[in-house]
Simulated scan of single mutants.
Amino acid sequence: MLRSSPALQNTLKSTPPENVAMKKATLIGISVSTMFYMSCGLVGYAAFGNHAPGNFLTGFGFYEPFWLVDIANVCIIVHLVGAYQVFCQPIFGFVESWSSKRWPQSGFIAREYPIAMPFGGTFNSNLFRFVWRTAYVIFTTIIAMLLPFFNDFLGLLGASAFWPLTVYFPVEMYISQAKIRKFSSTWIWLQLLSLSCLIISLVAAAGSIQGLIKAVQTYEPFQSIS
């Protein structure tokens, strides 16, 4: 058995490098997301024009089949909970790190309380972390409830972040890494791609702002209008 072990190891397929695996995963993820978003956007606009509802499942006034709506709501919850953690953890880490450096002797901030978890070992809890994160979640939830025009607000945020984060910086980093010469054919095509996406972002932002202005005219706190 020991003699055959090296031979078996030589026949095992080695795992691909991290950059290759991430490139493949990113390509698949972006392709699937683009397919779904473009399908909803193009088909919805072709069928309903400007009257296309923000929520395709319930925006038409009926909730059948109910199981499909329930599955979609569960998927939205899973998606938003994960996205909320991704965006909030850097804020949590920054505030907690700054507070611990600013008040290192404070027991409220620095002291850890070990809590025994059944079948899970010991979990360290911090009173400041508990209070600060709870207050942050409550505050952001109230702000979200005060803004009933969710679709237009989300569209404005997406349009503002799309071009610089998704197009401009990746394109410029690729040009710098690959040492692409200015005014070469590849450089020109990349700049045209970046310019086209910038125009799309500006148009999307203008449409979202117009929707926000229209929604504010009939604004009622804690009421869903989109």
Rank of each mutant, 00 (worst) to 15 (best):
A110I: 10
A110C: 12
R111N: 14
R111Y: 15
R111F: 11
E112F: 08
E112Y: 09
E112S: 14
Y113S: 01
Y113M: 05
Y113F: 10
P114C: 03
P114I: 02
I115R: 00
I115P: 00
I115M: 06
A116M: 12
M117V: 15
P118Q: 10
P118T: 10
P118D: 06
F119L: 12
F119N: 13
G120P: 03
G120H: 07
G120T: 07
G120Y: 08
G121E: 04
G121S: 06
G121T: 02
G121R: 04
T122W: 08
T122P: 02
T122R: 06
F123H: 11
F123C: 08
N124M: 14
S125C: 14
S125T: 08
N126E: 03
N126L: 07
L127M: 08
L127E: 00
L127V: 14
F128N: 01
F128I: 00
F128T: 00
R129P: 00
F130I: 05
F130Q: 05
F130K: 01
V131Y: 02
W132S: 01
W132Y: 15
R133C: 09
R133L: 05
R133N: 13
R133Q: 10
R133P: 00
T134G: 11
T134I: 07
T134P: 04
A135I: 08
A135V: 13
Y136T: 06
Y136W: 15
V137E: 11
V137W: 15
I138Y: 08
I138V: 15
I138R: 03
I138A: 12
F139M: 12
F139G: 04
F139Y: 13
F139L: 07
F139H: 04
F139W: 12
T140L: 10
T140P: 01
T140A: 07
T140Q: 05
T141V: 06
I143N: 02
A144P: 05
A144E: 05
A144G: 12
A144C: 11
A144Q: 06
M145A: 12
M145P: 00
M145E: 14
M145V: 01
M145S: 09
L146E: 01
L147K: 08
L147S: 07
L147A: 12
L147W: 11
P148Q: 08
F149D: 03
F149C: 03
F150M: 05
N151Q: 13
N151L: 06
N151D: 12
N151A: 10
N151Y: 12
D152I: 00
L154E: 09
L156K: 10
A159C: 11
